[in-house]
Nucleic acid binder design. Sequence first.
DNA 1: GCCAACGTTGGC
DNA 2: GCCAACGTTGGC
Length: 136
Amino acid sequence: MNYWLLKSEPFVYSFDQLLKDKKTFWDGVRNYAARNYMRNMKKGDQAFFYHSNKGLEIAGIVEIVREAYQDPTTSDTNWVVVDVRPLKRLKRPVSLKEIKQEKLLADMELVVNSRLSVQKVTAEQWEKILKMSEEE
DNA sequence: GCCAACGTTGGC
DNA sequence: GCCAACGTTGGC
């Protein structure tokens, strides 16, 4: 199983909204690197839900429930979406600031290439952030 | 609101 | 195929 990170501006689509919706398709990705990651997502993979611009924190965890298919919002066949459902809200959101302070997470794409809207997360990074969310 | 970083576009 | 110009993203 692989781990990912999905970015969304909370005033456009927040984790709370996803909790209400129970499920959504992840559209609007118009970057090839991000698209390629989406194509590699497998059913059952998990992803952090990160709030960019406002919040700047990982709010919760989602699960990929449908693998990449044509983005229904465009006829351009370059672009795909995946379906996700919320798994759980983090006990405590983990902020970008904390992530930047953590040496183990210095290689995260979130730190190195903050503009990429779909990112890959290693198992080590995943565990570390989960642990951080459990702590004070 | 500013601006650095990055991706894309288009002229050559 | 290079690279300057431009647009967008996102942290600050």
